[in-house]
């Protein structure tokens, strides 16, 4: 890579024809009954329009992100090898560190509301198919999450290499948004983020909430205690804790920002205001909010009660939105 400041190509743009072909293939497999694929036209339209809009939003923020990155690059700590065969080590280190950065970004985007507000639209579909992968944020530039990648530049990784690696990560994550692939061979499932692991990430079952933040490597979730395996006895129910009530695309983009503004207006103290913005999604001052941690704790309590008193348990229940069965 000759120009260290500007990537010679955009991996994501190059991959767009592949995205289109794979979506058409997935639909064909569903139509032919060869894979458990489900598409709903308005949901698909929302996902794809969100993807299209995110490219425009990305361009709007590209100036400030690029300027900040170049400024940091010109104040970098060291010059890493970028010529000759030594570049292999630089790429390898970048691959691991960029993926770790993605894990941190993704975890922040779920566990703190200011970042969740920008990320939630990626999760607001009740479907899980390849079009869901393109359901990207329009407001990600606003919350400064791009700052998380600046330490890599400061360490001496060239901006062009980081840009390429981020693109590789995004393209990798496209194909895992599918129900058409059940499981990969066990060694791959152990190391890589796979369709199975990422289905769990998109699920709203209490057991699965805020799990599997990985980009390419699932090892980070295993290391940091956020891994959850998909279970055959608990099908994923996709979407968010409180699903959107319609297909309004502006609601999908801005509803959490609007909710933050409304909650801020009601905040009775600076601490409350801080928690409204930077606390976990679902936090409420009365402690009655539906945070992921709270929902999981209540679910675990119900499970424990069901085990100690099986008669009180309602037993396994059908998912209202993910099942292929008719209502019992």
């Amino acid at each position: 890579m000759q120009d260290l400041e500007h990537a010679p190509f955009d991996v994501v743009t190059l991959a767009v024809p592949g995205f289109v072909l794979l979506i058409l293939l997935e639909i064909a497999l569903g139509r032919l009954g060869r894979a458990p694929v489900r598409y709903e036209a308005r949901d698909t339209a929302n996902s794809l329009i969100l993807g299209l809009g995110s490219t425009v939003a990305g361009v709007l923020f590209a100036g400030i992100v690029g300027a900040a990155t170049l400024w940091v690059w010109r104040h970098r700590l060291i010059d890493l090898p970028v010529r000759g065969w030594h570049v292999v080590f630089t790429w390898l280190a970048l691959f691991l560190l960029e993926d770790l950065t993605y894990y941190a970004f993704h975890r922040l985007s779920h566990e703190r509301r200011f970042w969740w507000a920008a990320h939630v639209n990626h999760h607001s579909s009740q479907h899980y198919n390849l079009s869901t992968a393109l359901r990207q944020t329009w407001t990600g530039g606003l919350n400064g999450s791009w700052l998380l990648w600046l330490p890599l530049t400061f360490m001496g990784f060239p901006p062009a290499m980081i840009f390429v690696q981020k693109g590789v990560s995004l393209v990798y994550q496209f194909w895992i948004h599918t129900e058409a692939v059940r499981r990969l061979p066990a060694p791959l499932e152990y190391v890589l983020n796979t369709p199975s692991h990422h289905r769990v990430h998109h699920a709203r079952n209490p057991r699965y909430l805020d799990r599997n933040y990985a980009g390419i490597l699932i090892i980070w979730d295993r290391m940091f205690g956020t891994f959850e395996a998909e279970r055959e006895d608990e099908p994923c129910r996709y979407g968010i804790v409180k699903n959107l009530g319609d297909f309004n695309i502006l609601r999908a983009v801005f509803h959490e920002w609007s909710a933050i503004a409304a909650d801020l207006a009601r905040a009775r103290s600076p601490r409350e205001a801080l928690m409204v913005v930077f606390g976990p999604p679902g936090w409420r001052p009365d402690g009655e909010g539906d945070t992921a941690r709270g929902l999981r704790a209540r679910w675990e309590a119900r499970q424990a009660a069901a085990v100690s008193s099986p008669a009180a348990s309602a037993g396994p229940v059908r998912s209202p939105d993910a099942s292929t069965e008719a209502p019992a």
């Binding site: 639909i27 139509r31 598409y39 036209a41 099942s323 292929t324």
Partner: peptide, 10 residues
């Protein structure tokens, strides 16, 4: 294509 395929969840 997604609409024509008619593959929503039952």
């Amino acid at each position: 294509v997604a609409a024509l395929a008619r593959i929503p969840r039952p």
